[in-house]
Design a protein around this nucleic acid. Structure first.
Lengths: 146, 146
DNA sequence: CGAATAAAAGACATTAATATCTTTTTAAAA
DNA sequence: TTTTAAAAAGATATTAATGTCTTTTATTCG
């Protein structure tokens, strides 16, 4: 309802590497896709974009894979949304009206704007590192359970 | 971000008929599509579903078109969402996890659930008739402005 | 260097949403 | 009853999102 599947894959992939890749251990796409039950090649495409944004590192060749860097845990969720979905979606009128905005609001604009600002606020504050603490680790590791 | 384009078309179409179809005047799909700058045949498909749900009436043939009935203004927005988008979208985990729920929540579940409940609450209370009052009429009539 | 490994890149396939076009059905009115 | 107008229905087209497969590039190690 809020974001694309790609966003879910991106965040889950980053979380997996963040949790399993402590001490710089490199994690391969094969393992991530398998553990998270996510389509391997599609995930690869998304991870490539994540690396390009500098949110993770990657190295090719034997013993290569994805690894965390100093940006990883500090990355705000909103940046992952930008990467996968863009940000216009936070501004698009719920009725699809091009000319709807604060000064010329559609009948639902204000209510929707309120709800959106909460979501934006949450995603603008929450960092990847906030989702990798002890109480979440168990759940993250069971991400694959479908 | 929240709902499909179809939902926007549906609500705008119903609103247009509600406002322009006072005293049972029948409004034709051609006029609606033109005034709202919406693809005619695609809108027709959606309006058909709206009629099937009993939210509007329609009659074929000369002088036919879409007209309001006693359900129209009392229709809650959530019912239009159901019609166009289904309702599972209110339950789907934002990370795409099948096994995420209140008892087994993903790291974002509770925050998202809160925001969703507000949206659900709003759409479960707001009725078509609530969006057709004086202060909104002007805007509704300019829905077409793209 | 050459073989093997893993990500990057790109081509192609499938699916769902959105959009268009044509035919059929219904109803009004001349 | 024929003509005409309008929605209903259905077939087809396009686009964007999602998913798969193949080739290329970079890296490690023998």
């Amino acid at each position: 309802m809020f974001f694309s599947k790609s966003f879910g894959y991106a965040l889950r992939g980053v979380l997996y590497v963040s949790i399993e890749g402590k001490e710089g251990r490199k994690i391969q796409i094969e393992e991530i896709a398998e553990q998270l039950s996510v389509p391997r090649h599609f995930l690869a495409k998304i991870m490539k974009a994540v690396v390009k944004k500098g949110i993770l590192n990657s190295t090719k060749g034997p013993y290569g894979g994805f690894s965390i860097n100093k940006k990883t845990l500090n990355t705000k969720l909103i940046h992952l949304v930008e990467l996968t979905d863009g940000t216009e979606l936070f501004n698009n009128c719920i009725l699809g009206l091009k000319n709807c905005n604060g000064k010329n609001p559609c009948p639902l604009h204000d209510e929707i704007a309120l709800i959106r600002s909460q979501l934006l606020n949450k995603f603008g504050k929450t960092r990847v590192g906030d989702l990798t603490d002890e109480e979440n680790v168990n759940f993250i590791k069971s991400l694959a359970v479908v």
